[in-house]
Write a protein that binds this DNA or RNA. Structure first.
Lengths: 114, 114
DNA sequence: CCGTTAATTAACGGACCGGTTAAATGTAGG
DNA sequence: CCTACATTTAACCGGTCCGTTAATTAACGG
């Protein structure tokens, strides 16, 4: 389970971690601030943050004794990109677009599309 | 870890399972067919399939002694929908669109947009 | 320097995961 | 019915995950 995508999905497979990401979407926050909504210990939060950091989903900076976390959504883009390959299996619009593209591709009439 | 999204992400966090989904994108397949590319035992594949089924990512049908699996991408739509909330953090186009929408919303000129 | 505050590390326990092999189940078919 | 084939279930094992409490590190501020 060492490939990048696996690490990302595994990080997202925990509700506490997803809630942390949701909180970080509103702005940076320190560990204690992030821990506040949950009734689990600070060390537990600290390790969730490490998991998120390993997945590249957050970056962290230190100022004095506070360590603030910041959302880094690039891994989400990667994960979405992977899922995108299956879009035609759920998205009716995509299915139509797909058919349209296939039609155009098969079409040898070389008419310029504006 | 019982909420739907967690189960889906956890199912996707394994490279073997993602490879199985990739194979199923090309069409239904039996357990032995799915197992063929991997050098892990059949029972192991069988359990991966159960995980995927629990996540709703595949459905299964039986005909004689063969059980064929079929891709069900709806959970991928759900997962994508969740990630979509963070799109503005990675997608430059979305950032521009977002700014545009905010501008329009702030605009009190009520001019009809064709 | 010393106390306080913020956060991490260490050590531990219980649950789950992903693999194995061996046994069981279910169905087709001579 | 008996055999062969496809698949699942059972039992086990080592490793990882998620939580705990206690101890440690780091920095500020009187």
């Amino acid at each position: 389970m060492s490939d990048r995508l696996s690490v990302i999905f595994a990080a997202l497979a925990d509700p506490t971690r997803r809630a942390i990401l949701a909180r970080l979407a509103e702005g940076e926050a320190t560990v204690t601030e992030l821990a506040e909504p949950f009734d689990i210990s600070l060390p537990a939060i600290s390790r969730h943050l490490k998991v998120l950091e390993n997945a590249g989903l957050i970056s962290r900076s230190r100022s004095a004794q506070w360590r603030s976390s910041r959302l880094e959504a690039e891994p989400l883009r990667e994960a979405t990109a992977w899922m995108e390959r299956y879009r035609r299996f759920w998205d009716a619009n995509f299915t139509r677009l797909d058919a349209h593209l296939k039609r155009m591709q098969t079409d040898r009439t070389t008419r310029r599309t504006q």
